[in-house]
Design a protein around this nucleic acid. Structure first.
Lengths: 295, 295
DNA sequence: ATCAGATCAAAGCACTGCTTATGATCAGGG
DNA sequence: CCCTGATCATAAGCAGTGCTTTGATCTGAT
């Protein structure tokens, strides 16, 4: 049964005559008449009795009108919902972000988003880049904030990479460390030090930096929690490399931070599935993140 | 929002890919693709993310799918109901009938109808022809069993008259009446008798018959209930004319009935609104009545 | 009696909408 | 590593749906 004909029939029932319904629909009378004829042919019974002065529903017609009303109601609700979603009066954005972004960039972005669009919901999953990509691929999140050290972390096919910025990596030393007094510290100075490293990609970066200075770091402790890392360093258990955002999110009062281009930089940005920004809520979140990173 | 597109979208969501939906619908892939594009243009947001290996719903898509399912469900129920109504597994026929038909023809017709179509409902309103026509015109009944004495009781425009038969009118005399012994009784013999008459049209008929014999009847009692009429006659309060069906429905054990062409005949049949037999249940009832009257 | 309203019917044309053809991208297998 | 087969989109063309136009009938009201 053609649902459009059902709605035309509903309009006829509402208007009380075929002509009136045609006027309401902006059509001519025969157009509506033909649709009704087709509907009656489909259903196999008369839906309305035609007479001068209008039209009157039969029993099947009354039964069908009930259904037509239900269909029209759901259609109307669908339109309302779609309108709410496109005007950002409703919707959910699901984010995944690596820990230091989850502590710095994301809260600011969420705050801005809620200010502009109070009815949007945001959910956040903290995840290191590989897991974030996995969440993205399985459709568990809409946007994934990820980072990469040297090459950009472009994921598998179907994912779009949008760089947001670059941040320096800093050296973190214990407060009473022998190098803490030195004005400049080079990678080669740390060949004999015990190391505290983070997630696999961060560890890989540390190894690469050390390899550039001709040695392999002695990894003593592993933690992807930058608070844990700084506490380990603070009590003298090793040295560490941490990106600026991690130190921005939490700065242990006693550790010594040394800045140098030698420690490299880290690129961070958003990953999303192709076409995802066509969802208004996702696009709004994306705009918010881009605005924060650039502005 | 075009409801057909909604259903196409639903099929795509169900099938998991545009191509699969196109196969299910018996169309080509671009046809479905174009509909989806149009739907997304209408709603203003992406409903699904296209990827190799199929398609995945976005948040608006999931919301819309819920509505699409509801629309499809109501559409399906509508089809089921229409099928039930056309196959007479459901439906109601509302009858109006004059008293003696309500006591004879209609019960037989209803019995036959219920035997053939046990799920049909029948309602009956007893009404003399003028009220029956009124019920028909105001849409309170589907079929009206009416009678007429001389001219056929064709009602106002828009009503169709279907004659079912003709029945003789008989003279009803008290058991101890002076004429009860006579072999032949003519209208002129009753010039001095008191009369018991029925409904306005029946009374009019009696008056016409008497006028043909040159006198005006002395109407003493009026009742459109043929049981009452016969009881009045039985105790000698007057003579009466009753149609055969009234005497068939109830025959007072003591009254004397005399048959003669002089008492005239009565035509009875069904009136219905134009197009009413296009409703299956109405048509079935009509067939039943015609079958009973002719067979 | 005429007019205004309703209806149906037939014929014509325009536009929607499906098909065909093509190209791009991605996953899996030899 | 390339090839095959799957997905998608886009563009162009044609056909058929479906709307309009026109004309006629009928009812009810002025």
């Amino acid at each position: 049964m053609d649902p459009r004909r059902l709605l035309i029939f509903r309009e006829v029932a509402r208007a009380g005559s075929i002509s009136a319904a045609a006027r309401a629909l902006g059509w001519t009378q025969p157009a509506v008449s033909q649709h009704l004829r087709a509907l009656e042919r489909e259903t196999g019974c008369a839906l309305l009795l035609r007479g001068a002065g209008g039209v009157e529903l039969t029993e099947p017609g009354r039964a069908l009108l009930t259904r037509a009303d239900a269909v029209a109601a759901h259609l109307h609700m669908a339109e309302q919902e779609m309108a709410a979603l496109t005007t950002l009066q409703r919707g959910t954005v699901r984010l995944a972000a690596f820990p230091s972004a989850a502590a710095t960039l994301v809260p600011r972005a969420v705050a801005g988003l809620r200010r502009r669009h109070p009815d949007l919901d945001v959910t956040l999953a903290e995840a290191e880049p590989p897991e974030a990509v996995a969440l993205l691929e399985e459709g568990a999140v809409d946007l994934a904030l990820v980072f990469g050290y040297d090459d950009e972390p472009v994921g598998p096919a179907g994912l779009v990479w949008l760089p947001l910025g670059e941040e320096p990596v800093h050296l973190v030393l214990p407060p009473d460390h022998r190098l803490a007094q030195r004005r400049a510290v080079a990678p080669a100075d740390l060949a004999e030090e015990p190391w505290v490293v983070g997630c696999p990609r961060c560890r890989e970066h540390a190894v690469l930096v050390c390899a550039g200075a001709g040695f392999e770091p002695q990894v003593r402790h592993v933690s992807d929690d930058y608070v844990v890392v700084q506490n380990l360093v603070a009590v003298g258990l090793g040295v560490a490399l941490l990106p600026r955002s991690a130190l921005e999110a939490y700065r242990h009062p006693q550790v010594v931070v040394r800045e140098s281009a030698a420690w490299g930089t880290r690129t961070f940005g958003v990953l999303h599935r192709e076409g995802a920004p066509a969802v208004p809520a996702t696009a709004a979140a994306l705009r918010e993140l881009v605005g924060l990173a650039s502005g």
